[in-house]
Design a protein around this nucleic acid. Structure first.
Lengths: 336, 336
DNA sequence: TTGAAAGCGTTACCAC
DNA sequence: GTGGTAACGCTTTCAA
């Protein structure tokens, strides 16, 4: 339990000098700095983070608020965030909003964040006005990924463009019978993303004079098993689409599973396209609209760090690129 | 910025009484407690966690050390841990050991944990003796998931049994030409798990008088794309196995992808079985040896909390159950 | 049952 | 450049 006092004594200087020297502040002579550094090393001194937090008011931690950790998208995003925060010597404080039972979720409260963190990152999470106020009242920098909320910086993709790329790809192949698996509004996940994607799906189709029957637009839960279950009625219905677009790759892979179960060949009987470029998509040959989720996480962390350091305090809205990656799950429709 | 002093003043008591009352300690009269509670609520008082940590020496945080966050297994495990820690009013401090470039990783150092946490959880991570000493010197409770290290509690599955179930299933179906995709020793991941699984694979086969050619035991990297790439030579070789078992579902799904690319029917031309029960396995019809990863995470958290509260300080080795789940990726071998 | 006061280990301000 | 010394906001004896 060596403290700053021990180091000061060993180096023959005052604690204030030790503090300054070790943190690399100026107004310390090179000789003194060296002496302090050596004493600290010899004593294996590590400053107590709680003590410095209390004294400085800074915690070197950032809260990351999210609905699910088990979904690939969020795990990857958080991984990217963690990487950049670590580089800046900051920590991630996980704030999972997932509730004990399905459909419920925790409310974000003042006590979850108060005096705990220097900044907040919110990941595609649906927050009500009260929860937004909780964050705003903290007076900390905030960056979101996905949520577009006035006054908060945001890193995201253009959801409508992503969906347009997917649909146009199918239209270009000649498909006119296209179904859609999106996500229903949910207590946790930010609703605008599925809304934007669903709207862009219908509009892009419509712009080419193709209409989509309402029964072919199903709302699922962002998961593979969910999508497999929810697309079933469409695939077993009286008339069957020649293609399905899913709002995420996890759901698209679920659709591929449902097709397999029905002995529908992909892409012979059914084309499938998703959004994300999930880690398994390349191996399984899923055509998708790729976004670089890891990089997006890193970028989100960087935007927050800039606000923290005061380097760049402006509220930003960064739109990351997406691009179509054609693999083996899409082909022209079979003639019937 | 209301502090404990403000509450004390408002309630007309001393700060010590406020502290005791708010933390639910005894030796506080019901009336006083009520008065304090009301004052705290009115002032919207939340105690500063850093201040209480400094004073008490407890941080109410637990370090979770792991090699990757992006892999489903770890994300799910951490999610389970987070759920139980939250219930006990504790936080997760993420310690990712993944390095900047592939194959490298961070070394666990004293400064990452010192005075930051009350306990440590290590997830299937390969730590050298020095790193183990770092943790031991902290004098904190430790629980691992997967790592079996003397003196540390462990929650895990029986890796050999899991593999035996997978192999016996294939033997029962009549397969005698079976290949294996495991994981090569790696800077980050605990090596014993792939070792146990690989050995059990070979031994179970051998016990039935079936031998496996060395070229059919490939070492991959736990990922789907990696397994798809690494199994290719086996599937395109002069003689082809009738079944593949993979050490994880992510890799098994990669194998299924490789088979699809080669136009091998599953299970007609090739049976595939994995271990884990990945979230996508049911949708994609993968036969697997299931382990309940989320529950394992919760359990790991509980074991740590018991040590923290002193409820149960014994070093435990908890072996969680596994079971075979037969789906559509396995069938008897085709006659040739 | 309550209160006074001494820490806890830093940082940051102000002299020197 | 360097040192002294109040904070920082709690918890925890110890006395009353």
């Amino acid at each position: 339990m060596t403290t700053i006092n021990d180091v000061a004594r060993a180096a023959g200087v005052s604690v204030s000098t030790v503090s300054r020297a070790l943190r690399g502040l100026d107004r310390v002579s090179p000789q003194t700095r060296a002496r302090v550094a050596q004493a600290a090393t010899e004593l294996r001194y590590v400053a107590s983070p709680t003590a410095s937090s209390l004294a400085s008011g800074r915690t070197r931690a950032v809260a990351v608020v999210f609905p699910f950790l088990t979904r690939w998208f969020f795990a990857t995003l958080i991984s990217g965030i963690e990487q950049t925060l670590r580089r800046h010597d900051h920590h991630v404080l996980l704030i999972a909003l997932e509730g004990e039972s399905f459909g419920t979720r925790l409310r974000l409260s003042r006590s979850m964040l108060w005096k705990r963190v220097d900044g907040v990152i919110v990941l595609a999470t649906s927050l009500d006005g009260q929860e937004q106020a909780v964050i705003d009242n903290l007076g900390l920098p905030v960056v979101t990924n996905g949520n577009r909320i006035d006054g908060w910086s945001c890193v995201r993709i253009d959801d409508e463009e992503a969906m347009r790329l997917a649909v146009r790809h199918l239209l270009d192949l000649g498909h006119t019978e296209v179904a859609y698996v999106g996500a229903r509004p949910d207590a946790s996940a930010y609703p605008r993303i599925p809304q934007d994607r669903a709207r862009a799906f219908a509009e892009t189709l419509g712009a080419s004079g193709v209409s989509c029957q309402p029964e072919w637009m199903v709302e699922s839960d962002w998961t593979g098993p969910g999508a497999a279950r929810d697309i079933m009625p469409v695939l077993t219905g009286p008339s069957r689409p020649t293609a399905v677009v899913a709002a995420s790759d996890e759901m698209a892979l679920g659709v591929m599973g449902a097709a397999r179960r029905l002995r529908l060949a992909i892409p012979g009987d059914l084309s499938v396209v998703g959004v994300d470029d999930h880690v398994l998509s390349s191996a399984l040959g899923l055509t998708t609209v790729r976004q670089d989720v890891l990089h997006q996480g890193r970028r989100t962390g960087e935007v927050l760090m800039r606000q923290l350091t005061g380097e760049d305090v402006a509220v930003v809205d960064e739109v990351m690129p997406v691009r179509l990656v054609v693999r083996e799950s899409t082909a022209p429709p079979a003639r019937r």
